Simulated assay, not measured.
Amino acid sequence: MSVQQRERKEHKRAPLHFRTRITADGREGLPVEAGRYRLVVSLACPWANRLLIARRLFGLEQAIPVAVTDPVQEMIEGDYHWVFSEANGDPDGRDRVLGIHALREAYLAAEPDYTGGVSVPAVVDTTTGHLVSNDFPNLTLDLGSEWRALHRPGAPDLYPAHLREEIDTVAEEVYQEVNCGVYHAGFAQSQEVYDRAVTKLFRRLDLLEQRLSTRRYLVGDRLTEADVRLWVTLIRFDPVYHGHFKCNIRKLAEYPALWGYTRDLFQTPGFGDTIDFEHIQRHYYATHDMINPTRIVAHGPDPALLLTPHGREALGGSPFGPDATAPDPV
């Protein structure tokens, strides 16, 4: 198989086309302003989940309202799209603030000739109805820095300057081989591509198991951006990636450290309270009809297992360290 043929059979994420930044002083696009922007998410999407966790940890729930799409995407003109629906609580199938049915309407409002993909998370300017950004890797970083004046008292620093180099290194490995790795395996269109992707994924999981066997968090002694980026994939692993995406060499629950780490963070305020397993499983099993043509949604595993003791405290460290606090209950 040629390189060109192999690339056509591999899953590739669409480029991030909309990257306007929202900054404290508006120097690079738009200014930070409480209530002006609407964060559009799917509760099923791991990339959107990052923003929901950061928003909770920083206490920005009132400053950045959220719009939640229906978990099952709708076919519009030959493509699946994120939409708002009456079944998901939106009157007349439209977001009650933006007045749109499909997220792509905000994309086209910003750029009428746009023909690329539509993804969540997406930040929309409610004053214009225009999409501002779908740049998920940098949106969480900007919430931690540019929105600092609106943070709650005791908000953590997820990207401390002295740890940034290590955070970036770990996060990039996780992104390439775990966050994207499950999709490379799940959407593979040839045995060769699948074999390569699933092998690389589990090699990285094995290395992460070793790393987390002797430390509670990925970098340092408290939660950082690296943990947020890994956890959103781990929490979806056994419910959908193991079976639906054929990532089944091992279950996450068969990794003592990774499974304990996943439970530890699930029980940490700001993490488990952003998860909706019904949305997660309905989206994956009911939308990807090329993988699951019957659209039957699998049962299990039992989410109550995530509340079992994990014993990770023995490794030292604490979620927010001595100088930050947990967010208030939802």
Rank of each mutant, 00 (worst) to 15 (best):
A324M: 07
R96P: 15
G78P: 15
A326G: 07
R263C: 08
E10I: 10
V3S: 10
H242R: 01
I280N: 03
S190F: 02
L139H: 02
A122K: 02
G93F: 08
C247D: 04
A102D: 13
M1H: 11
A48Y: 08
V198I: 03
G272H: 02
Y285N: 06
R196I: 04
G300I: 07
A122Q: 01
L60F: 01
P256S: 11
T20Y: 08
R222Y: 06
A109V: 12
L205V: 04
I296A: 14
L223P: 08
Y159M: 13
V174H: 07
I235V: 10
A34P: 05
E61P: 13
L139E: 01
S119K: 03
V182R: 05
R56H: 11
S318F: 02
L307M: 10
R19E: 03
A122Y: 03
G220I: 06
R50H: 11
Y107H: 12
H184P: 00
N134F: 05
Y80Q: 15
Y255H: 04
E209S: 01
A14S: 13
E28I: 09
E254Q: 09
P301H: 08
D90R: 09
T224R: 00
T69E: 04
H288Y: 07
Y80P: 08
A34S: 14
E28T: 09
G117P: 04
R196Y: 01
P293D: 12
P31K: 06
R203E: 05
L16F: 08
V68T: 14
Q62N: 15
C180A: 13
Y175W: 10
A122C: 08
A314Q: 03
G311N: 03
E74Y: 13
P156T: 10
Q73N: 14
Y175M: 06
L158N: 06
V330A: 11
G144R: 01
D125R: 09
R215S: 04
E105F: 12
A185N: 05
L315Y: 09
D323E: 14
I275Y: 03
G26H: 05
F277Y: 15
L208N: 00
Q267M: 11
G321R: 02
A286S: 14
D273G: 05
D323M: 07
L150H: 10
S42T: 05
V330I: 12
H310Y: 06
P309R: 00
E209R: 00
T224K: 00
N134D: 05
H299R: 12
P327L: 07
